[in-house]
Amino acid sequence: MAFVKISEQDSLYNDLEKKSVLEILTEINQEDHKVADAVQKTIPQVEKLVTGIVSRMKKGGRLFYMGAGTSGRLGVLDASEIPPTFGMDPGWIIGIIAGGDTALRNAVENAEDDTEQGWKDLLEYNINEKDTVVGIAASGTTPYVIGALKAARAHGCLTGAITSNPDAPISEAAEIAMEMVVGPEYVTGSSRMKSGTGQKMICNMISTSVMIKMGRVKGNKMVNMQLTNKKLVDRGTRMVVDELGLDYESAKRLLLLHGSVKKACDAYRAADDDKL
């Protein structure tokens, strides 16, 4: 069967420029409703990938997202949110985009067409067999990503692929393929829309479940979050109040002294144990 790029097929809507703003917004929203259902169908594959990532990460392995354009930016975005949210060192989950950091804000000509560069970029991080590489490409044909996945897999890394097309070349390159088929985009070929939304949802699922299984969440709280602003200090203080039964000011002093909810609670309980 010939490979068909569903993500590049003509939009189900036409004459967009003749529509009212309300019509445009309503139709985009109608299309967005399809994304969650498409992502749901990938859960068995995401589960397999997360289980493998956690097993490797407990042995010192890391997670790399690889992508170009929108896909690359979303991988970098998800990786960049891990340190402030879960208090993990930024070296644990890393986003790499074709063309480097310049490509986060500007298109870099031909960056995604280099089959060898993706693996070269990974080598700069001393990638090894404990690591996991997840390639993200709506089209499923991005040479930069496919080349990186093939090389990573050949070197013993766990590999995953996120794409919007079934039976895509990127799926063949990876050990675990997550194909969330969201259908044609509202603006034909604009994969920053439904495809991008679905990619972000899957990245959220991967990184959040990995962090939970790595012990970075207690109950349902981000007990290791970085205290980078007043809102987060207040949230953390209220967590300490709930956990230890202290008054607000005492909890805040304890939190700021130790730098995270988990460390503050552990230190308080250790001090209590010493008194026994």
Score class of each variant (00 low, 15 high):
Gln199Arg: 01
Val217Glu: 00
Lys263Met: 01
Met205Cys: 05
Ser164Val: 15
Thr142Leu: 05
Val187Tyr: 09
Tyr125His: 04
Asn106Asp: 12
Gly72Ala: 09
Val4Tyr: 13
Leu149Met: 14
Lys120Met: 03
Asp121Trp: 03
Tyr13Ala: 10
Val39Trp: 12
Ser80Glu: 04
Asp131Trp: 00
Gly95Gln: 04
Asp114Cys: 07
Lys48Cys: 08
Gly160Cys: 06
Arg105Gly: 12
Ser80Asn: 06
Leu74Arg: 13
Ser260Cys: 00
Leu12Ala: 15
Thr159Asn: 13
Asp15Cys: 08
Leu123Asn: 08
Ile162Thr: 06
Val145Gly: 12
Gly140Arg: 11
Asp32Ser: 09
Asp37Glu: 14
Asp121Ser: 04
Leu158Thr: 02
Arg56Ser: 09
Val240Trp: 11
Gln117Leu: 10
Gly135Thr: 04
Leu227Thr: 12
Thr141Gln: 13
His155Ser: 15
Ala173Arg: 02
Lys263Asn: 05
Gly72Glu: 06
Ile202Trp: 13
Met214Asn: 03
Glu31His: 14
Asp274Thr: 14
Met1Gly: 14
Met222Phe: 08
Ser195Val: 03
Ala251Met: 05
Val76Gly: 05
Lys59Pro: 13
Gly118Trp: 03
Gly52Thr: 00
Arg216Gln: 10
Gly259Glu: 00
Lys5Ser: 14
Val181Asp: 10
Gln199Gly: 03
Val4Pro: 15
Ile94Gly: 08
Val133Gln: 01
Thr208Glu: 05
Ala154Met: 06
Thr42Val: 03
Lys231Leu: 07
His33Met: 12
Ile162Asn: 07
Leu22Gly: 15
Glu8Tyr: 14
Ile24Phe: 11
Thr188Asn: 08
Ser139Tyr: 02
Met205Arg: 02
Asn29Arg: 08
Ile212Lys: 00
Ile93Pro: 11
Ala154Asn: 12
Ala267Tyr: 02
Ala68Ser: 06
Leu149Ala: 15
Ile94Phe: 01
Val54Asp: 07
Asp121Cys: 02
Gly196His: 00
Met205Pro: 05
Asp273Cys: 15
Val261Ser: 04
Val223Arg: 12
Leu256Ala: 01
Asp266Cys: 02
Gln9Ala: 11
Ile212Leu: 04
Ile136Asp: 04
Ile206Phe: 12
Thr208Tyr: 11
Met193Phe: 00
Gln40Leu: 09
Gly61Phe: 03
Val108Ser: 01
Asp266Asn: 10
Ala79Gln: 10
Asn110Tyr: 06
Glu116Lys: 08
Asn106Met: 10
Val35Ser: 05
Ser191Gly: 08
Tyr144Met: 05
Lys41Gln: 14
Met180Glu: 12
Glu23Arg: 07
Val261Phe: 04
Val35Asp: 07
Asn128Thr: 02
Ser20Gln: 06
Glu129His: 09
Glu31Tyr: 13
Val4Ile: 12
Asn224Gly: 12
Met201Val: 03
Val223Phe: 01
Arg216Pro: 08
Ala38Asn: 08
Asp10Phe: 11
Ser20Pro: 04
Arg105Lys: 11
Val76Pro: 05
Ala38Asp: 08
Gly236Thr: 05
Val187Phe: 09
Lys150Glu: 13
Glu249Ala: 14
Gly196Phe: 00
Asp15His: 10
Met180Leu: 07
Asn14Arg: 15
Arg253Ser: 10
Met201Leu: 07
Asn220Pro: 11
Asp272Lys: 10
Ile202Tyr: 11
Tyr144Arg: 11
Val35Ile: 06
His33Pro: 12
Lys48Glu: 14
Ala151Ile: 07
Leu77Thr: 03
